[in-house]
Design a protein around this nucleic acid. Sequence first.
DNA 1: CGCGACGTTGATTTGCCTCAACGATTGTGG
DNA 2: CCACAATCGTTGAGGCAAATCAACGTCGCG
Lengths: 192, 192
Amino acid sequence: MQPAQILDNIQKHISVSQPEKELIESLLVLQRVPKKEVLLETGKVATEIHFVSEGVLRAYFTDREGDQNIVMFAMNDWWITDMYSFSTGNPAQLTIDALEDSVVYSLSKTNLEFLFLKVPAFERFFRILMQNAYVREQSRIIQNLSMPAEERYRQFLTKYPQFAERITQKQIASYLGITPEFLSSLRKKSNA
Amino acid sequence: MQPAQILDNIQKHISVSQPEKELIESLLVLQRVPKKEVLLETGKVATEIHFVSEGVLRAYFTDREGDQNIVMFAMNDWWITDMYSFSTGNPAQLTIDALEDSVVYSLSKTNLEFLFLKVPAFERFFRILMQNAYVREQSRIIQNLSMPAEERYRQFLTKYPQFAERITQKQIASYLGITPEFLSSLRKKSNA
DNA sequence: CGCGACGTTGATTTGCCTCAACGATTGTGG
DNA sequence: CCACAATCGTTGAGGCAAATCAACGTCGCG
């Protein structure tokens, strides 16, 4: 296994010594996730956070009508879990599965807490991760509140071109909070 | 000044020694914010984060049509800033002002970074703060995606009864992403 | 090869918005 | 401390963005 990628990602935010690197590596579990396989199921407790090395994952919420609402996508260099469940220990509200054959490095909550103790800078790394996630979610709220679907779609394309290429329109529509039919009609308009 | 309240809030998550408490206190600036006064203006850089001791504040985004979209309320024991601007140093997208006469303790980014160095546990405290904020924003997104306005309103009432009492319906409508007129019609229905 | 998911199109419906008008509160200057 | 102005909450008429439902060709996969 070559978690160079994940260490690079960490070292974008903090600096870690060689022994610390080895410690971090030793706590990561490589996991192959074939397309459609479920990493986390609603109702179970999220005991791990996953770093995506290859492929694409999604996290979605299933509402009372049984519709799936996509909360986030994750690919190269993203971290994903049901943070609510992960931090409280309550049952997960989200399901996480793979949209493509993927490879992730998983870190258990226990090992994460252990890392916080052994490598204090890791707490800083995680703080930055959470801060960025907070900012991202808040700006998504702003967009949902203030922009019509057509503009949200355009912003999505420019903000996440890597996703736009690899994800079906049905998934994108769900992320934007609209129906696939309506997204289709938006695309028709803007192409013309 | 008696920042016992803020230290209590911090000690819910980490433990701090007496000298550390004094250091923290020394970096906080007490600030009275009369109703309608602006704490942070769109376009300026958010250099401080504010802990609300008394009163009620709001953060809102002004869209192209000039409409205000409320991103968050804050009262007793909440921390508020434009986290995007605070963490990147870019101009703020949000305006923060007081809905009632309020009292806040402000902590500058410089002093916060200083605290991270001097009191390592403070980085943990802030990590937890950001993590909770992330979870909160994400669950708001889930609600916006999956529930009609009527149910979002009911959930708001049960989740934040303290806000519901003190905030006008116009503000609540803006937070929910609907017009005051429509909120009024929802209230009429549920009372009948 | 055949089946199921996808993307598209069109007809109809609906949740929510816009605009306008009105009494009831709240705030404010004289 | 009052009188007037401004903002708020409400109601109703009409309109629009987006949903629903149904139907159909296409494509990828087993």
